[in-house]
Computed example of a mutant assay.
Amino acid sequence: MKTILTTGSNGLLGQKITEKVLQERRVNLIATAKGINRYPVKKGYVYEEIDILDVERVREVIEKYKPDALIHTAAMTNVDTCEVNRESCLQLNVSAVGTLLAICEEKNIRLIHLSTDFVFDGQNGPYREEDAVNPVSYYGKSKVLAEELIKNSKTNYVILRTILVYGISNDMSRSNIVLWAKGALQKASPINVVNDQWRMPTLAEDLAEACLLAVEKDVRGIYHISGKDYMSIADLVRKVAEYWKLDDSFINEVSSASLNQPAKRPAKTGFVLDKAIKDLGYNPHSFEEGLLILDQQMNKTN
């Protein structure tokens, strides 16, 4: 059985990978993150506390467990924070990747790296893996820089680009669009939602499955991983309202420009998933199926 090490295991995707491994026992898992372990189940895997910027600690843990593969989910993903705090963004999204790459090259460890649809400018979506990147935000630029580092290395790598990940996990430090919309509409709070950005939202469970498939399959290169449904952000939020029978009159559709956000967003992304379906056996849920899964998970915890 292969040993994998995950970074960012306290995040939504990190927790879903832990959950999948515990359910299916496909690999031995070393989960790592900053701070204490926030996943509720503590048995069946190993947890190590790591600050991804602490090079000596990162090396120490990797050398201790000698993983076959490393799934790198830790990153600074708040697009506006990245725009404003570029130095931190560069450290977390590029320098940390350089550290991991050097160790993976040296130890012959397979690297599964998470990237984003924000590497594209949003003028010609949905995108294929070989389409030219042209980021419009600093976050997107940092992820392109990381991709270039990886592609120019000798490491056996898979880059998984994804879009607008949603889901529910234990003790979440950050919300996501589905939970934000549901929470606001339940409180009857008016919300501004953009109607000029188009995406293919990704269920966190589907992305976790893709990460494990990338470890298992003998593939290399870039793969696009998202949900199968293409919709505007406004339509997405309306689907959330419809599913949970919430009043959609509190949804105020606005243009991206009216929000005056520090970072620009690509207008229309979305992915062509053919390569991931063919090479990895990737099979994502529909958005409605994803909402049903979230609903069932919420009912279990209530």
Score class of each variant (00 low, 15 high):
A263G: 05
Y39C: 09
T32P: 08
L5G: 04
A188P: 00
F287T: 00
V254P: 06
K151Y: 02
N108A: 11
A184G: 00
C211R: 01
D295E: 13
V97S: 15
E129G: 01
M76Q: 14
V46G: 10
A74N: 02
V158Q: 14
P266D: 07
L70S: 07
D206S: 06
L160D: 14
N134L: 12
K239A: 14
K107W: 02
I163L: 12
N283Q: 08
N195G: 14
R25S: 12
R38C: 12
N176W: 04
W244Y: 12
E83H: 10
S173K: 15
N28C: 00
P126D: 08
K16S: 13
Q23S: 11
L22N: 07
L164H: 03
G167H: 09
N93Q: 04
I36D: 13
L53H: 01
A267Y: 08
D131F: 02
S232G: 10
M172H: 04
D196T: 09
N124K: 14
L207H: 05
D196P: 07
K278C: 00
K182T: 08
E288S: 13
Q91R: 15
L273A: 09
Y138P: 02
V119R: 13
T301F: 15
V165N: 10
G11K: 02
Q123I: 07
D206C: 09
L111N: 04
E56Y: 13
T301P: 00
V194A: 10
K34E: 07
K275R: 15
V21C: 13
Q123C: 09
Y138N: 03
R38V: 13
E148T: 12
E253S: 04
I52P: 03
P266V: 10
P190I: 00
K34P: 01
T73Q: 02
G125M: 02
A33T: 02
D80C: 05
V46N: 10
V119T: 12
E242A: 14
A204K: 03
K300N: 15
V27L: 01
A69H: 06
